[in-house]
């Protein structure tokens, strides 16, 4: 009892001294956690499922079949992490480790300009409500693009070396709060005779990533592919599983599976130490990762209901055009974070 109390008191005294080796009380962890705002995805459903967005200080693996939106997801986060504090964002920078060459800066610039427009819209609406000038706090599209560092790596040795040099990079760029590795698996899926060597390299890499994630409050997003697994004893039948095998499955704290169901994309939270396993729809549209039409409509209806009962925080006139609706949804979404009132 006594020692626990001492730890609590010590924790409070030490205040924000993160990364201290002395251990931390649960209470202290909660206090620290408040400063680690997650990174929103711009899809309310996914954010809700993940407890507000992609968590920082942890590894999150995103897996799925080709074309389902893994890279889009990574790119969207690289933009979203830069949303300024004034708008309820993290106000950080991003490092995109591109191992496959799948990052397209043209697409990235589209995502950036969409977010810039969202923020400008919020700022204008806030001004109408009498909130002082937010418009000057909106970064330009160039600033967003400039806030994403890109590393292109060509083989697994470069990839391992890059992770090794990460701490140095993060000291030089303390603003970076997100590292996306797209993809983890690509260079590890060939040229290995001895699988135990591969497993060892991967678990070591995961460990190093975990360390930097904690030390710098980074969200580390690991994109992974799916691979064919031949089931033993099932007459040679095969199924799709995330690549890199069983031991890699333990590497990430959270695992998100992106999948198709008919014509719609879904995100399934496969693994999380805190949150319930759940599946939600999302879509990839011109402006980026967003809610689906139907879940937007449902959210709008719910918002309408609360507005009618007098508790709505963001009424906003609803336009009939689809893209307008989208902006409104995104605005409500970001506004939510800004108001710190996630009560839904």
């Amino acid at each position: 009892m006594g020692s626990a109390a001492a730890a609590v008191a010590g924790g409070v005294l030490r205040g924000g001294l993160a990364g201290s080796q002395a251990g931390a009380s649960a209470r202290e962890l909660i206090v620290r956690g408040r400063h680690k705002k997650p990174i929103i995805t711009f899809c309310r459903e996914i954010d809700g499922m993940m407890g507000g967005g992609v968590p920082r200080g942890e590894l999150t693996e995103v897996c799925g079949t080709p074309g389902v939106g893994k890279t889009q997801f990574g790119m969207q986060l690289a933009v979203d992490v830069q949303i300024p504090h004034q708008f309820g964002g993290v106000g950080g920078g991003a490092l995109y480790i591109d191992t496959e060459g799948s990052l397209t800066v043209e697409r990235l610039s589209q995502l950036c300009s969409a977010v810039v427009e969202h923020l400008q819209k919020i700022a204008r609406n806030k001004r109408k409500q009498g909130v002082p000038d937010l418009e000057s706090a909106v970064p330009t599209q160039e600033a967003f693009l400039g806030g994403i560092h890109v590393w292109r790596l060509h083989d697994h040795a470069e990839q391992l070396a890059a992770v090794r040099t990460l701490p140095e990079f993060l000291v030089a760029h303390p603003e970076v709060k997100l590292v996306v590795m797209d993809s983890v698996a690509f260079h590890f899926r060939h040229a290995f005779q001895d699988m135990s060597v591969r497993t060892r390299m991967l678990s070591r890499m995961a460990q190093q990533l975990n360390e930097v994630a904690q030390a710098h409050s980074l969200a580390v997003v690991l994109v992974n592919q799916m691979t064919t697994k031949v089931m033993t004893g099932h007459r040679g039948e095969s199924s799709l599983v995330p690549a890199l095998g069983e031991s890699w499955a333990h590497a990430a704290t959270n695992r998100l599976l992106l999948l198709w169901k008919g014509q719609e994309r879904f995100a399934e939270l496969l693994k999380s130490p805190r949150l319930r396993r759940k599946t939600v729809p999302f879509s990839v549209v011109g402006v980026g990762i967003r809610d689906t039409q139907s879940s937007r409509a449902a959210a709008a209806a719910a918002a309408g209901a609360t507005a009618a009962s007098g508790g709505g925080s963001s009424s906003g006139k609803r336009s009939s055009s689809a893209s307008e609706g989208q902006y409104q949804a995104a605005k409500r979404h970001v506004g939510h974070h800004a108001n710190q009132s996630r009560t839904l």
């Binding site: 690289a78 995109y96 990052l103 800066v105 043209e106 990235l108 610039s109 160039e142 693009l145 400039g146 806030g147 994403i148 560092h149 890109v150 590393w151 292109r152 790596l153 060509h154 040795a157 470069e158 391992l160 070396a161 890059a162 090794r164 040099t165 140095e168």
Partner: peptide
């Protein structure tokens, strides 16, 4: 060895674009 084999890349998405 790591610092030597990691490609030199002080580039942002803006530079690439």
């Amino acid at each position: 060895v790591s610092t030597r084999i990691v490609p030199e890349q002080a580039k942002t998405a803006g530079d690439l674009l």
